[in-house]
C-alpha cells in the first residue's frame, strides 16, 4: 500500500471515529473534552497560520479570542438574538484583528512577539478593569445556546456535533489555503522576505491577510468557547491562554495540518487529567514548554516522525528548528 493510500485510510478512520464519537464515548465528560479539543484545534489552526506558515509568533491571540467571546456574551446579555450576536462578534473580532495586525506587523521576529504580547496584555487589562462593560472579574454569563434550524445545542452530544462540523469546515479551509498560491507566498515571506519583495510580492499585505484569516479562525473558536462554557471572564485573555495555544502549535508541529489538532488534544487532555489530581497546571505547562523547546523544537508530530525514521534508517541530517528567526541560508 502506498503512503498516499495509507494516509487517506488514516484520515477516513479518524473521520469515522469523530463522527461516531458520542456513541462509543458514552460519558458526557469525555464528549465535552472532545468538544474542547476541537474548538481549541480551530484556535491552534489560527495561531499556526502565523507561527508555522508566516514565522510570526503571536503571544496576544488570546486577546482576539477573548474579544469575540466577550462580544458574543455582551450582545446576548444586551438582548440580541443568537445569529445577530454571532455575526456582530465576528465583525468586531475581525475589525480588532485588523488593528492588531496593523500595529504588530510593523515588525517581525522578536519585535512581533513583544508587540503582540503587549497588545494581548492590554486587552486582558481592559477585560479586567473596564467593569462597566465586562463586569470585571465576575465575567459575563451566557444563559442559552443557539438552536440552529430548531436543533437544540443544550446537550453535550449536540454541541459536539456542531463543533465538529465547524471544525471540519475550518480544517478544509486551512488545507485549501496552505496549498494555494497565497499560502505558498506566505511561506515564502517566512523564509526569505527580501527575496519575496524582489520577486514582486507585497510582503506586508500577504502577512496582513494571513493575520486576518488567523483572526477569523481565532474568533470562530472564541465564539464556540463562550457557548461551550456559557461564561467568559478575564482569565480567558491572560498570557497563559495565549501561551497554551502557542504550546499546542509547537508541540504538535508548526506548519503542519495535523500538528495543531494533536497539540490541542495533548494540552486539553493533560490539562483535564492533571487538574483532576493537582492544581499545578501552570507549573506543568511551563515545564512542558521548556522541555519541548529544548528537546524537540520541531514539534511532536515531526519529532516523532524524525525519531521513527532515525530508528530504521539512521538519517544523519540535523533536526530542523522552525523556531529559528530569519531565513535559513540556502
Amino acid at each position: 500500500m502506498s503512503r498516499g493510500v495509507l494516509g487517506l485510510a488514516g484520515l477516513a478512520a479518524a473521520f469515522l471515529a469523530l463522527v461516531t464519537l458520542p456513541l462509543w464515548l458514552t460519558q458526557i465528560y469525555y464528549v465535552n473534552v472532545a468538544s474542547q479539543i476541537l474548538f481549541y484545534a480551530i484556535f491552534a489552526f489560527g495561531v499556526n497560520l502565523l507561527l508555522g506558515y508566516a514565522g510570526l509568533v503571536s503571544l496576544g491571540h488570546a486577546g482576539l479570542f477573548g474579544i469575540a467571546s466577550y462580544a458574543t456574551a455582551y450582545l446576548l446579555a444586551a438582548g440580541w438574538g443568537h445569529p445577530l450576536s454571532i455575526i456582530a462578534a465576528l465583525i468586531i473580532g475581525l475589525f480588532s484583528t485588523a488593528i492588531f495586525a496593523a500595529l504588530s506587523l510593523r515588525t517581525s521576529g522578536i519585535g512581533f512577539i513583544m508587540i503582540t504580547l503587549a497588545l494581548g496584555e492590554i486587552l486582558w487589562g481592559l477585560a479586567y478593569r473596564w467593569i462597566s462593560v465586562t463586569n470585571g472579574d465576575n465575567g459575563i454569563n451566557v444563559h442559552t445556546r443557539p438552536t440552529p434550524f430548531g436543533f437544540s445545542l443544550t446537550s453535550a452530544e449536540a454541541f459536539y456535533y456542531v463543533t465538529f462540523v465547524v471544525f471540519l469546515i475550518c480544517a478544509i479551509l486551512v488545507a485549501i489555503f496552505v496549498r494555494s498560491p497565497l499560502g505558498a507566498a506566505l511561506r515564502g515571506t517566512r523564509d526569505q522576505p527580501r527575496r519575496m519583495t524582489a520577486l514582486g510580492y507585497h510582503v506586508w499585505m500577504i502577512r496582513f491577510w494571513a493575520c486576518m484569516f488567523s483572526g477569523l479562525l481565532t474568533c470562530v473558536a472564541g465564539i464556540l468557547f463562550v457557548y461551550y462554557n456559557q461564561f467568559i471572564s478575564p482569565q480567558t485573555l491572560a498570557l497563559t491562554s495565549s501561551a497554551e495555544v502557542v504550546l499546542m502549535v509547537i508541540s504538535g508541529g508548526p506548519a503542519t495540518l495535523l500538528g495543531p489538532v494533536v497539540g490541542s488534544a495533548l494540552v486539553v487532555i493533560v490539562k483535564s487529567v492533571v487538574s483532576g489530581y493537582i492544581a499545578r497546571w501552570n507549573f506543568l505547562l511551563g515545564a512542558i514548554f521548556v522541555a519541548i523547546v529544548i528537546l524537540m523544537p520541531e514539534g511532536l508530530v515531526p519529532g516523532t516522525v524524525r525519531l521513527w525514521k532515525l530508528g530504521w534508517r539512521r538519517a544523519t541530517t540535523r533536526r530542523p528548528s522552525v523556531l529559528k528567526t530569519g531565513g535559513p541560508p540556502a
Binding site: I113, A243, R280, W281, L285, G286, F289, V293, S321, T325
Partner: peptide, 23 residues
Amino acid sequence: RLPGEPLAQVLVTLGISFMVADF
C-alpha cells in the same frame, strides 16, 4: 543551550515565568 535561536529562548523564558508564578 539555545544559541542563535532567539525565538526558542523567548519561549523558554515564558515557560519559566509560568513555573515561577505557580511556584
